[in-house]
């Protein structure tokens, strides 16, 4: 697991999460141990941002939501305008967790 201290690291970058689905609630969203606070916008779109220190290591992305099963969702995670994760799927239970690995790469010199 990659430990991060985004507040004090000048290399930290903004990672944005966009989630679209008709759900009751988004329970939690994390990238490793960094919490991404998700807020509901218009048209059943949720979004949040977090500061992450880039590295070539793989990180665990988790997003849990509450909705009836068979709910379609679309998820995009971006950093510096580059898509780190872009997926869509359908949930099969009421408490559904999306778990994916992603990399927040250091900026190319």
């Amino acid at each position: 697991m990659v430990k991060t201290d985004p507040g004090s690291d000048p290399n930290a970058v903004n990672v944005s999460v966009a989630f679209a689905a008709v759900v009751f609630d988004v329970d939690s969203c994390t990238i490793d141990d960094v919490i991404v606070r998700m807020s509901r916008g218009d048209d059943d779109k949720w979004s949040g941002q977090a500061l992450i220190v880039p590295s070539s290591a793989k990180r665990q992305f988790r997003l849990s939501f509450r909705a009836p099963s068979q709910t379609d969702f679309a998820l995009t995670v971006k950093a510096r305008g580059t898509k780190l994760l872009d997926m869509s799927d359908t949930s099969d239970k009421a408490q559904f967790t999306i778990e994916k690995e992603l990399v927040v790469p250091p900026a190319a010199d």
Partner: peptide, 8 residues
């Protein structure tokens, strides 16, 4: 309900 959105 709407396909992929049981709450609609």
């Amino acid at each position: 309900t709407e396909s992929g959105a049981p709450l609609k």
